[in-house]
Design a protein around this nucleic acid. Sequence first.
DNA 1: TAATATAATAAGGTAAGTCTAAAATTGTCA
DNA 2: TGACAATTTTAGACTTACCTTATTATATTA
Lengths: 160, 160
Amino acid sequence: MRGKGKLTSSLEDYLEAIWLLSRESKVVRVRDVARRLGVTPASVVNAVKMLVRRGLVEHEPYGYISLTDKGMERATQIYERHTILTRFFRDILGLDSNSAERTACILEHHISEKALARLVKFLEFVEECPDVTPYWLKGLHHYLETGKRSVICPLRVKQR
Amino acid sequence: MRGKGKLTSSLEDYLEAIWLLSRESKVVRVRDVARRLGVTPASVVNAVKMLVRRGLVEHEPYGYISLTDKGMERATQIYERHTILTRFFRDILGLDSNSAERTACILEHHISEKALARLVKFLEFVEECPDVTPYWLKGLHHYLETGKRSVICPLRVKQR
DNA sequence: TAATATAATAAGGTAAGTCTAAAATTGTCA
DNA sequence: TGACAATTTTAGACTTACCTTATTATATTA
């Protein structure tokens, strides 16, 4: 009953799109989803049919699309994966927002829970900014941009 | 002529497997690839046919499979992506080797050149071990393991 | 309210990637 | 050398995920 009921990448994309659209405009139609994902309405109808079968969305013929509680929960999980990956690629690796978004969009379907959890901790560690991290991060970004190591850290000579 | 000629994830997997097997045993047969990838020989035959069409492998009917120069080049590119991802997930995020491998195996097909290039620089930065990184990395791993921040860095009080 | 535009759906097709089952080939060894 | 086993291949089916085209439903507005 509480089994994961795996979704394909494609269905995850549809579910995520429906969720995002419903945050933006209260009412979601086939057409909106099609535009968002760059597919034909026919493809959306098909996908929605499958999501309905799995109890993740509701859809009255020729009417609006909405998420069930289960669908909502699932969509937020997917979106969380998305934002974590975006943050990593943008804030740590310094990719521009678009590239980071696109990368997240693809990888979000394939990364494991285990790996994702590590990434979360990594971000926590970096973003909550303890001792050396600010220096380290600056040094990293300088290196990513210029290919050269900065000499920001005054520790250098002291180390051994 | 020098166009990328994109491969599907699946074909990349086959090509990579053939390459890995040919490093291990000089001669590669349909059967070996099937075992390695956990698919039926019939699937391998199909895939190999497509790789032959693209000029990446050679195959005499009922005989051995080998890589062309082009296929070799391509396979090493794929494997490089693989190792970069493995290193990141294992050495930086501290995943066990198996999980890191599995993660790399999936993501290697989907990560963009741009993102991968950043990851490479990231690894360079960390592994070539400059000023603060050793401290920082120790702190990160401690945090990943225990959830607690260590006070390894003596800088703490000095900073402002 | 009838005509028209827009939206949704159904039907049918293509391509990738797998499978099973059956047929063809090859290699081994008694 | 001939028969059996292992391997490879072919043929055909299924699933996912798209598409196009044609039909049906809804909404707008003259």
